[in-house]
Amino acid sequence: MKQQRVLRYMIEVEHGIDDYVDDEVSASENETAEEYIPAGRLVQITAVNDDGVIENIDLWVPPGPTTATRLPPARTRAHSRGYLVDTRTNRAVSFASTHEMHCALDLLSNRLVIDVEDQPPAVPYLAADGLMHEHTYDYRATLQNGTRLAFAVKPFDKVEETGIEDVIERTKPNLPGFADAAFLVTDRTLTRNRAWNAKATLRALKIRNDQDCARMRTIIADVHGVVSAYALARNFERFADGLNAIWCLLYDGVIELAEPARKLVDAPWVRVCNGGVVA
């Protein structure tokens, strides 16, 4: 067993969650799990059946296509390609590298972001050779307040080689109407640990239970300082339900990770924000 897994197990034992007998899924829950649709959206419509009785019917709406101006290139052995689904807009979001995937996950798991566009329209700029060129940012995010931010994603060791910082600076005069600001993000911030936390958040939101979230809010009402997320989750009959509520409240901004640069599984500590009130 790897050293990291041993340390995780020790953390679980320390917080009393090494025994998952009480967390076994019941038969009825298994039936629900089998019906779970991982992507897309369920919408309810009213219809009249053959007997003239009005009934509600759930329809599955598949994710819409990406709005990207260009699609990821063909897969290679050295790079990852694929799509995520933004459940808020029910639309596909593409990525053409692991770093881009991490950036997309960060944006999709941020409650302040209401829309994520991959490969938005290109921005023209005057290059050093005196000619007009175009640059396509990897992502454009729209915030709740209407602000639009553009992101260029590069590995840190490729920043100087690609001259991306100069390109971003040259596009700034032409950003109005496209974005309010543009940023360069690298693997220095787009870490695997942050991506792991982002994926865990998105998984929790898919099966969010508002009653569990309300119960967790009550539990943390009198909490001050840093507390174990595992200890909070153990207040539930099923540990998994409590931990899922933790992830949802992290998304809501009610609580925050004490060590956001680490995976929650390695540093299971959280603190309440603003007295538990969403900012």
Rank of each mutant, 00 (worst) to 15 (best):
M1Q: 10
L7P: 00
H15N: 13
H15R: 06
Y20S: 13
V21Q: 15
S28W: 07
A33T: 05
P38T: 07
A39S: 15
L42C: 08
D51W: 14
I54H: 08
P62Q: 09
P63W: 02
A78I: 14
Y83N: 10
V85C: 13
D86R: 05
D86M: 05
F95E: 01
M101N: 06
C103V: 02
D106H: 14
L107N: 03
L108I: 10
D115R: 14
D118S: 15
D118K: 07
D118C: 11
V123P: 02
V123M: 06
Y125S: 04
L126V: 07
L126A: 08
L126S: 04
D129Q: 05
D129P: 00
L131T: 12
E134S: 11
Q144M: 12
P155L: 12
F156A: 14
I164W: 06
D166F: 07
T171C: 09
P173N: 08
L175Y: 10
L175D: 07
P176Y: 13
G177R: 11
G177M: 10
L184T: 04
L184V: 03
R188D: 12
N193W: 02
R194Y: 09
N197H: 04
N197T: 08
N197R: 07
K206T: 11
K206R: 15
R208L: 05
D210P: 00
R215N: 09
M216V: 01
I220N: 01
I220K: 01
G225V: 10
V226T: 13
V226S: 07
S228F: 01
A229D: 06
A229M: 08
A231R: 15
L232P: 00
N235V: 09
R238C: 02
A240T: 10
A240Q: 08
A245R: 00
A245K: 00
I246T: 05
Y251K: 02
L257G: 01
N274A: 13
G276F: 00
